[in-house]
Design a protein around this nucleic acid. Structure first.
Lengths: 150, 150
DNA sequence: CTTACATCGTTAGGATGCTAACTATGTAAT
DNA sequence: ATTACATAGTTAGCATCCTAACGATGTAAG
């Protein structure tokens, strides 16, 4: 998270360039706006999910599984790869979704180390319930923050 | 952090709009790219700071103080406001920077509840040492990720 | 077969963020 | 002066991320 409320003015960036001549004020300004804007959206999304007993990661885990109905479930390691998060986080995420009855997993037949994770009917319902608000939040955010900061 | 590695294709977004007609595929696509790009930059910055015994928050705290040489230090509550983070985080951040000898604080004269936090000479030196690499990392990142994903 | 190595998911421990509640101090109303 | 409320910073406890290391299982080499 990056939450600097007031980004440096153009003038402040130019002052830094005086001290560090290789510095590119344009790129730094853009990067800070990217970080600030992304963090604000992330914060709003986390708050939304939290109000629905979810989190970004739990939501995305469910989306990933839902997105591949052809497969009869995903392996935790696949989820870790696709979400680009560490496996221990996937372990905990699955555990918590199972406790909530939104996911269930079964040992793999051919590889007894592995397990397949599927959505329960409740899981599919929870996803459908949360998606409209998710899309609405994003549309609203993008509308509000149409780069008038640049 | 938002780390979905493969963002949904335009086609997948359109499929979601079929299920949720109010959904705006354009806005959602842009938002996900914003989140992904911001998270990647954040991850690189954290790695950079971590290699220098710092963190985003510790770095930004120091920058904030450095940025106002007219003041003889900032109050923790001011830092919390400007960084848009909670006060307990500021307490811990200051503690760790003091342990590293980069910051020191003194009780305020007029308000004995408050304290002023200043950079030590070591703190100023650490900041100067870390800034060129910080600017270079950002310039490189922005160069690499010039929105060819859109 | 057995030995060595790779991979799956988990556990353990650390970092960083949050909210709620606390202590100490300041301020304003009676 | 006293009472009540507000504010500064801290502590305690929770959530979520990480890396390192583990046990169990699979695979490949001799």
């Amino acid at each position: 998270m990056f939450f600097l409320r007031e980004l440096p003015t153009r003038q402040m960036l130019l002052t830094y360039r005086d001290r560090f001549p290789d510095m590119n004020p344009q790129a730094v300004g853009e990067a800070l706006r990217l970080l600030r804007r992304g963090s604000l959206l992330m914060r709003e999304l986390e708050a939304y999910f939290s109000a629905h007993a979810l989190s970004q990661t739990r939501f995305l885990t469910m989306i990933l599984i839902d997105r591949e109905p052809a497969r009869d479930g995903l392996f935790p390691s696949e989820i870790a790869d696709r979400l680009d998060i560490s496996r221990p986080v996937v372990t905990d995420t699955i555990k918590s979704l199972e406790r909530a009855g939104l996911l269930h997993s079964i040992r793999d037949i051919s590889d007894r180390r592995a397990k397949k994770v599927r959505l329960t009917p409740d899981g599919r319902a929870a996803l459908a319930a949360v998606l409209p608000g998710y899309f609405a939040l994003i549309a609203d955010f993008m509308d509000r923050s149409t780069d008038d900061a640049s």
